[in-house]
Structures are given as structure tokens and as C-alpha cells.
């Protein structure tokens, strides 16, 4: 801090402390404010899911609930009431679809990422460039024809759709991902070439090398891909909405949305508690997975941003 007359003046110890306190107070206050903005919708979801209709309809919103006022019945009604959507079934569907598409994705991704990272073949650069270029194309371009394709395969019967058809239609188009291939290839490329040469000298076959050396080394990335892919399926809405024609084959998001649409013209406050209960039920597993595997998820996302 240079003073006017060109003499350098130093802050006293006290001034430094005051400045620092002011600054940190500001930063923590504003961060807390934004954190509240982020949390409020989740809080509101939980809060509302535990309210009775009259509390929901209160013109001055109820901000807190005492335990004895909590209406856990909303959860029961959302999940088990005979007239409510079958969320248990939707969750089972979603888990099945997520498992199948994730296993499929990881297999195709590992194999092709290895080819791109490690093997020499004709048109490698060209093919890779082509893949990168397709990432620029909006998904709707694919969705239209893919809908046609699965329809022609007979998987989207408008009446009496069979379960395995619905599952096939929801998984097969998502069993590979150019983005994950690209992502994993980057990790594979970081494995020093010497490891491959050393393995060659020791007589390791390519597939053995991939399985015993590359995959274990790239495990963090592979786990990240597994989680992101599974979470993506859990949150999927558009595609299942198109190809699952029977309500029983809904995934969770579709079930939730159908529920909301069904009550749109009913007295809402009667049902919003149940609706929020259902919303929280399908949000909760994601939150659990997120808190358990935070590191993998956050690292994966921030890296995907850097690499572009």
C-alpha cells in the first residue's frame, strides 16, 4: 500500500486483523446466502412432504415443523396407497435399466478407449475426430431416428408393451458413450508407455494388459464413469417417456411427472404433500450415493470441464 508521498506505509497489526475480519465476514456471509438459496428447494421439498393439507395451504408459509406435527403418512400414501402411482415398481425399473446400461457402457467404453489409447490402426485419428465431432450434434437428432428404430424393432408396442421390450428400448441405445470413451482414453493415455513395453517383454497379451494393468490403474476414472452413468439413468426422463408406453414400465422421473400431471386440476394442496414425498423418495437415493462417493463424482465433473 503506497502512500501519496511515495513513502511506503505499513498497516499496523490491528489494521491487518480488522481488514481480514471484515473480508472473511463478507465472504462467509455471501457464501452462506447462496448456500441457503441452493438448499431451500430441497428443504422445502422435505418440509412440504411432511405437511398436512391445511399447513400446506397456509398463506403464511410454515417454515419449520415440530416432530409431532410431521405427517409421515404422506410417504405411506405416495408409496403404497392403491390409487397412487407404483413408485416401488418404478424404482425397480430404474435400478434395472441403470444396471444394464451402466454395465454395457463400461464394457464398450473400456474396450474402445484401450484401442484409441494404446493400439495403432488405420484411420485411428480420423475415426476419433469423427467421434468428437458427433459430440457437437444435439441429442434430438439421434432421438428421433432411435425412436423410429426401436419402434420398428417392435419394442414400443403402443398397446400391451412387453417388459423386456421396454427394458431393451431403454438400455440398448445407451450402452456406449462417446464422451466416456474420450474421458477414459485420456486416463489410459497417462499410463506410461513403458508399462506396456515392460508387460510385452514379460509376455503379457494385450487383453491381459488391459485387464490387469490398465483397468486397475484407471479405476478411479472407471468408478466415476459408473456413478455418473448410473445417476444419469436415475434422472433420465425424455427417452423413457417416449419408449415406455405402459405406466408400469415408467422410470422414477416419468412416474413422478405423471403423478403431478394427474393432480394438476385437482385441489392441489390435498396432494402436494404426497407429491413432495414421492419427489424426496426418488431424490434421496441420489443424495446418499452422492454423499458416499462425493470425491469420485466431483472429481469426474470438474475434470470433464477442464478437458472439454
Amino acid at each position: 500500500m503506497s502512500a501519496q508521498n511515495n513513502e511506503t506505509t505499513y498497516d499496523t497489526r490491528r489494521q491487518i486483523i480488522v481488514k481480514r475480519v471484515v473480508r472473511y465476514t463478507f465472504v462467509y456471509t455471501i457464501l452462506t446466502f447462496f448456500a441457503l438459496l441452493v438448499i431451500i428447494p430441497f428443504y422445502w421439498m422435505i418440509l412440504t412432504s411432511l405437511m398436512t393439507p391445511d399447513k400446506i395451504a397456509s398463506p403464511v408459509p410454515v417454515m419449520f415443523l415440530r416432530f409431532r406435527d410431521m405427517q409421515f403418512g404422506n410417504y405411506y400414501e405416495a408409496m403404497f396407497a392403491p390409487e397412487a402411482p407404483d413408485f416401488i415398481r418404478y424404482m425397480a425399473n430404474t435400478v434395472l435399466v441403470a444396471a444394464i446400461s451402466t454395465v454395457g457402457t463400461i464394457i464398450t467404453t473400456i474396450l474402445s478407449a484401450f484401442a484409441f489409447a494404446r493400439l495403432n490402426f488405420k484411420f485411428k485419428e480420423l475415426f476419433f475426430l469423427l467421434l468428437i465431432a458427433t459430440m457437437m450434434i444435439p441429442g434430438e437428432m439421434f432421438v428421433i431416428t432411435n425412436f423410429i428404430t426401436v419402434s420398428r424393432l417392435g419394442w414400443v408396442e403402443m398397446v400391451g408393451q412387453q417388459y423386456h421390450h421396454a427394458i431393451l428400448a431403454m438400455t440398448l441405445p445407451f450402452m456406449t458413450s462417446i464422451f466416456y470413451i474420450f474421458f477414459l482414453r485420456q486416463t489410459f493415455k497417462q499410463v506410461p508407455d513403458e508399462l506396456y513395453y515392460a508387460a510385452k517383454v514379460d509376455g503379457t497379451k494385450d487383453f491381459q494388459y488391459l485387464w490387469k494393468i490398465m483397468v486397475p490403474i484407471a479405476r478411479p476414472t472407471i468408478i466415476t464413469i459408473l456413478i455418473l452413468n448410473a445417476m444419469g439413468t436415475w434422472n433420465a426422463f425424455i427417452w423413457p417417456n417416449l419408449v415406455a408406453t405402459r405406466p408400469a414400465f415408467n422410470l422414477v422421473s416419468n412416474g413422478l411427472r405423471e403423478f403431478a400431471t394427474a393432480i394438476e386440476f385437482l385441489p392441489q394442496e390435498e396432494y402436494i404433500g404426497q407429491q413432495m414425498a414421492a419427489a424426496f423418495v426418488i431424490t434421496f437415493p441420489i443424495l446418499v450415493v452422492f454423499f458416499l462417493l462425493k470425491k469420485h463424482i466431483m472429481r469426474g465433473v470438474s475434470r470433464s470441464g477442464i478437458k472439454g
Binding site: 506410461p192 513403458e194 508399462l195 513395453y197 515392460a198 517383454v201 494393468i213 486397475p216 490403474i217 479405476r219
Partner: peptide
């Protein structure tokens, strides 16, 4: 043959 690399090429895992 046995080959020792400049950066050792030990399998890290």
C-alpha cells in the same frame, strides 16, 4: 530378455 526402463515402469497398483 529382462528389460529395465529409465522410469522403471513399475505397475503402480
Amino acid at each position: 530378455i529382462g528389460l529395465v526402463f529409465q522410469n522403471y515402469a513399475l505397475y503402480p497398483h
